[in-house]
Structure formats: structure tokens, C-alpha cells
Nucleic acid binder design. Structure first.
Lengths: 229, 229
DNA sequence: GTCTATAGGGGGATAGAC
DNA sequence: GTCTATCCCCCTATAGAC
């Protein structure tokens, strides 16, 4: 099975390069060079650059989301916000103890690549991402609403969105904070990073329902102009 | 001054294309085509693709950060978290009332472009971004710490980082939430978006200091391995 | 299955006429 | 200041020998 091994080699090489340079910034030539295989091998094994990117993602996203579902299943009927957030966050980071039994720990490369892909959202990935996260999103919203009566669905969705943003940014722009703080914050310390992220997001989720939620439902204020659209 | 007008035309065209396709995904040919100017004009006026991208950014980032500083100056000595967050968030979104006097309201294109650039962080931009945000970051951390005694600097920096992530993701992946929620959440409604973001971030910032902050300062636990590096 | 060679299309940058 | 024409690069994808 030399062929199967070639596939894995290519996937590993692509993962690192996509992480570093993004989708558009990565050439198949650089991938095959790093993998030490021939240029034509990518098209033979995957059928093109887009399919290669998708396969790099599914290799990790599948197990990660499976683990998330497993943790959501294991939640008590009235979970804490922190527990819910952990179910989403911990399977993604290369965490130390606590989830060692899970499927092959995603490497740092995948984390950065995933962050970039979330940001770039190449058109051919949108369908894939939507498919992977629609069900998970609904479960998340249901869990959040089960902990606190005052949160309407729209607010819960917004907060899921913000959580995803904080997470994606942490996965990909970690170097930035290390540089800005001159080492005070170390994104390579996965444990502390996760604790910080969980504390922040859990507090944000548990905040009071957004005042001006919905449309023309501001408490008391003279009619301002209803902007746009 | 026909020359100055050409420059602006190019900047506008580039802004839209960078927003839509990112830096790597945008060709100078597409820029000059949209701007209806000659291909050579970009190199004549800006000196290359990188310089063009930087100028597109500075055009908006400068005024936005100036406005942020102005709002931070106007903060009371013990401000609320929400007020601090507003000082950072509102100048970025195309907001309706409340900051109409500010410099030319940044359009949606710039918002998306900025989100992408924050995510991609092309190497030539890192120095620029660091320069633009170092001072602002320190002021932000100082403000946050002034509201609450228990927050150490590292935690404050982490939370600033998460805020930036939530904001960047909101700026660029707005379509995603509209699609996922089938219209329940509308990223084109800038007012509601800002209110949701401010409420979430303010609550996250005001959360209890992160338990496992710092390094080997976990309450009680056997020495675990000190990961990597 | 694996490789070489090449097709066929853009890409950024520049020289030099106007 | 503006344009045309061009240099020379790198890209993805594929055909066809081994």
C-alpha cells in the first residue's frame, strides 16, 4: 500500500502549507515538493486542489465534531455555561490531559489551517462547512437556552457566532498576541489558552440578554431613523 | 488634479476586491479593470501590490483609531465595560446615529476587507498592524484593569485578543450567520449587530478572573509536563 | 501507480511611446 | 500622467511514456 502512504504524505504536507499561507497562497508545487512526491500525484490521488483542501479538513473536522457531539450527549440536564463551551473548544486545541483518549490529537498545523479556512471561506468550502456545523449549531443553541430562560434564539446564535470568532482568531493569530505582549501571553501553552478562552466565552454567553435585541423593541427612546435595508 | 482622482478610483476598486477575494485572490488586473484605468497605473501610483493594500487599509484605519482614542479620552475615570467596548467597536461598523460626525463612515467593503486582513495577516502587513494597535492595546488593557481589580494583565490581553477575534469574524463572516439562521440574525442590521457584540464582549470582559491564569499556579495538582519549546 | 513534459492561462512588474 | 506592449515568472491540469 505505497499509494495510501503517498496520500497521507500529501495530506500532511498540504496541512502545514495551508496553515502557513492559506488556500490561495499555497501552490500544489510547494505541496508536492514538501511531500517529496511528483507534481502529478495530487491530481491523481485527489483530483485537484479543491478536493485536496476538503480532504485535509474532513480528516480532522469529522473526529472533532464527533467528539463534540459525544460531550454534548454527556452533559447534565442543566449544564453550566463553561461545560457547554468546553464541549466545543477542547476537542479542537491540542490539549494535554482531559481528552487524551480522543481521536488523533489535531496538530497545531490543523488548528491554524482551520482558522484560516474559517476566515477565508473559499466558495467551494461553504457548503461543506455549513453541512458540518448546522446540526452542531442547533444543539449548541438549544444547550445555551436550556441554562438560562432569558436568552432568545437570535441572541444565542449571535453568541455562538462570536464564540466561533474568538476561537478562530485564537487558532490562527496566536503569534500576534505573543508579539504584542512580548511573551506575557503564550499561545503555545494550550492549557492556559483554553482556560482563558473558556472563561471569556462562558461569561459572555451568560451575560444578560442583549437589551436592544430584535427590531423596534428598544425600551424607551424617541423614534430614531430605522437604518438601511 | 486628475491624478489624485485616479488614485482614489483605484483604492475604491481594490477595497471591494480585497474584501471579496482576499489579498492573494485579487489580481492587479482585476483591480485596474474595475477601476477602468490602465494596468500600469497601480505601479505608477503606489509602487506595487503590497503598497496598494497598505494604503487601502490606512485610509480607514487611521481615522478609526483616532476616533477610538478620542472616545477613550472621553471615558469617565471608572467606566463601565460596555463603554470601553463601545469605544473600540462602534467606530468600525457602519453605524447609524451616535457617531455620524466622525470621518467618512467606513463602508461594508472596508469592514470585510479588514476582517480578512486580520485573518490572513500577510507578512508585509504585520509590522503595520502591530504599529497601529500596540498603543491602542495598552490603553485598552489599562482601561479594563481600571474597572476591576482582580484582572491581571495577561488575562486582560487575552480578552482583548478574543474581542478582536469576535469582531473580525463578525466583520467578514456575516453571511455565514445569516445563512445558518435562515435570516433570524441579520448582519446587515448594523445596529443590532453592534448591540449583540457589545453585550457579549462586555460580559466576557467582566467575567471572573481566569482560574488557571499564569503558569505553574494551579491551586493543587501534581506537576504535569511543561509542554513544548 | 509514478513520472516527465507540456499545454494553456494568469500573474506582477517595467520600458518606452505619447 | 497615461497607455501599450512585453518580459518572465509561476500556476493548475493533463497527456502519455514507463
Amino acid at each position: 500500500m505505497t499509494g495510501a502512504d503517498t496520500k497521507t504524505t500529501i495530506l500532511d504536507a498540504a496541512e502545514g502549507l495551508f496553515a502557513e499561507h492559506g488556500y490561495d497562497g499555497t501552490s500544489l508545487r510547494s505541496v508536492t515538493a514538501r511531500a517529496k512526491v511528483n507534481l502529478a500525484a495530487v491530481n491523481y490521488h485527489f483530483g485537484g486542489k479543491e478536493r485536496l483542501a476538503i480532504e485535509v479538513l474532513v480528516r480532522h473536522v469529522g473526529p472533532i465534531n464527533a467528539e463534540r457531539h459525544r460531550r454534548l450527549d454527556a452533559l447534565p440536564t442543566r449544564p453550566t455555561m463553561a461545560a457547554i463551551v468546553r464541549a466545543f473548544v477542547e476537542p479542537v486545541f491540542p490539549v494535554r490531559a482531559g481528552c487524551p483518549a480522543g481521536p488523533a490529537a489535531p496538530g497545531r498545523d490543523f488548528c491554524r489551517m482551520f482558522g484560516r479556512m474559517m476566515a477565508e471561506q473559499p466558495p467551494f468550502l461553504r457548503a461543506f462547512l455549513a453541512g458540518q456545523f448546522r446540526e452542531l449549531g442547533h444543539r449548541f443553541v438549544a444547550c445555551v437556552r436550556s441554562t438560562r430562560t432569558g436568552i432568545d434564539p437570535a441572541t444565542a446564535w449571535w453568541r455562538l457566532h462570536f464564540m466561533a470568532g474568538a476561537m478562530a482568531h485564537t487558532l490562527l493569530a496566536g503569534d500576534g498576541i505573543a508579539h504584542l505582549t512580548e511573551g506575557l501571553c503564550d499561545p503555545d501553552d494550550a492549557e492556559t489558552t483554553v482556560e482563558q478562552l473558556v472563561a471569556f466565552v462562558a461569561a459572555g454567553l451568560a451575560g444578560p440578554p442583549t437589551p436592544s435585541r430584535g427590531r423596534a423593541a428598544r425600551p424607551a427612546r424617541t423614534q430614531k431613523r430605522r437604518s438601511r435595508r
